[in-house]
Write a protein that binds this DNA or RNA. Structure first.
Length: 483
RNA sequence: GGCUCCAUGGUCAAGAGGUUAAGACAUCGCCCUUUCACGGCGGUAACCCGGGUUCAAUUCCCGGUGGAGUCACCA
């Protein structure tokens, strides 16, 4: 059996779309599951869209998602180069295109933009706007003459006008398309570069790719690739077309959603492992129904034959939940590394930021959730005394005022503002007075935080605020309640 | 519009020719608790429609409907 080889073949045009991430991940999982090779190939045949730094984004993203590859531009293997613009220089695409011309499977086309646009405009409703094979009828001499005259040309695939083309996909089964629906697509552009459609087939073959994993949006152009393989007499790889990832409106996930790329998600405070985990489960699920899965577990369990056919909505809500799970299970130092900077965005005063951060570890889903949760540390909000009243705690303005008044001298008297110190002081008070915990703890927490709900309780908050600020806030509380 | 694909709760997603049709997120309620969160328990909620095949179809087939993708010298 031949070794499984899959590839991720992005074009350097910007951030990594989550659909691409999922495709890359599935390709990776297929090959790692089978002990095969994962190859990175850069498809930069469109010089217009290329920009400086785009390739670095690809490297960085693959690194942080943990998709390590065996061969790539920065990891030479036997079938390089791994960047298409470099492959162009070796002349392979032109060579293979000419081979097809020889075989009558492709032809030179000298039509200019105007004529093509006209063709488009002429296409009636219900008719596919496709090339009319105008240049196919050119004689060999005419072609030679045009070439000699330096006329710009492209090379087009010659697809029969009749019949059908069938290919097999592992997930969707046999798919058949009528040939007259297939356009004579451009193989070599007038700038001498191959199109994606052509380069892809050539490179997958030359690089020994056994499983082509790609998005479902390529399903309709797949028959053209099949014809290319047939024209060359090459064996086709195993096709794995992944179902689409859509937005809440069930449309292909686009930039408009605000979270269409991996980088968007990281910026929004998601953890890379959670994103990978979540994306893996869009369109596939393991037999044991496990949801939280490490990369290793995914590799072990992944079976591409069980990928779903139908499109999946990218439910950011569920990602948030999953991210929260990852945060809860995160080692403390790793958590603090990401959480403390968020704390510092909201709190400029000299409080123990690590302590504040730890209050939130089990309470947040994404890191930016921290900011609105801890604003009260920075500044006591101007709250309504209504919030002292809580039915279940049996508190109201009157008994809250009483509790705070009685407690104030005790808080003034002590210097032990440790968690344990405050706890002891308060529990002693509660025991002595013979009231329910909540009747004392609720008003104190309200006074020191000014908020109805806070991360942590009275002990934690007072420990962080310290004596001076705690006293100040309790006095404000008394003042407000006394009015 | 042509072509192609898809169709189980709001979302993800198991499932099987005969099941009380899993589980997760979300949602609702209860418990725990000094609030919130965490955690625990429980509830609401689904097989698109019509034919056929069959003793039996949500499951297989056909048609419809609905949704999506695609129709570039972009990938």
């Amino acid at each position: 059996m031949t070794k499984v080889r899959t590839r991720y073949a992005p074009s350097p045009t910007g951030r990594m779309h989550v659909g691409n991430l999922r495709t890359a991940l599935y390709a990776y999982l297929i090959t790692r599951h089978a002990g095969g090779d994962f190859i990175l190939r850069i498809e930069d045949t469109d010089q217009e869209r290329y920009f400086e730094g785009a390739v670095d984004i690809i490297y960085r993203t693959l690194q942080s998602t943990g998709l390590d590859y065996d061969e790539g531009p920065d990891k030479e293997g036997a079938v390089g180069p791994y960047v298409q613009s470099e492959r162009v220089k070796t002349g392979i695409y032109m060579k293979y295109a000419k081979e097809l011309v020889e075989k009558g499977e492709a032809y030179y086309c000298f039509c200019d933009k105007e004529r093509l646009e006209q063709l488009h405009a002429q296409a009636k409703d219900g008719e596919v706007a496709k090339y009319d094979k105008h240049c196919l009828s050119l004689s060999k001499e005419e072609v030679e003459a045009n070439l000699a005259a330096g006329k710009p040309f492209v090379i087009r695939q010659n697809i029969p006008a009749t019949g059908t083309t069938t290919f097999h996909d592992e997930i969707y089964g046999d798919i058949t398309a009528p040939n007259d629906e297939l356009d004579d697509m451009v193989l070599i552009k007038s700038d001498g570069y191959p199109t994606y459609n052509f380069a892809n087939v050539i490179d997958d073959h030359l690089m020994g790719i056994t499983h082509v994993v790609r998005g479902n949006e390529y399903l309709s152009s797949a028959p053209k690739y099949t014809r290319l393989y047939a024209a060359f007499g090459w064996d086709e790889p195993v096709y794995v077309h992944c179902p689409l990832i859509t937005d809440e409106e069930h449309k292909k996930l686009s930039k408009r959603s605000g979270h269409s790329s991996y980088e968007d998600l990281i910026e929004q405070g998601f953890v890379n492992e959670a994103v990978v985990n979540f994306v893996a489960l869009l369109g596939w699920s393991p037999e044991n129904n496990q949801e939280i899965m490490s990369k290793e577990e995914l590799i072990k369990a992944f079976d591409y034959r069980k990928i779903n056919k139908s499109p999946a909505v990218f439910d950011i809500q569920k990602l948030r939940w999953m991210n929260g799970e990852y945060i809860k299970n995160m080692p403390e130092d790793e958590y603090l590394q990401r959480a403390v900077p968020e704390v510092k965005k909201a709190v400029s005063k000299d409080y123990d930021c690590e302590k504040i951060a730890m209050l939130l570890k089990s309470r947040i889903e994404v890191f930016p959730d921290i900011i609105p949760a801890i604003d009260f540390f920075e500044e006591l909000p101007d709250y309504d005394i209504e919030i002292y009243t809580h039915k279940k705690m049996k508190t109201n303005s009157e008994n809250s005022l009483e509790v705070l008044r009685e407690l104030l001298p005790e808080f003034e008297a002590t210097d032990d503002y440790s968690f344990e110190g405050i706890q002891k002081l308060l529990t002693d008070y509660i025991a002595k007075k013979g009231i329910k915990n909540g009747q004392a703890l609720w008003p104190v927490r309200i006074a020191v935080s000014g908020k109805q709900s806070t991360p942590g309780g009275a002990y934690e908050i007072m420990e962080i605020l310290g004596k001076e600020e705690s006293l100040r806030r309790i006095r404000i509380g008394i003042e407000k309640l006394a009015k």
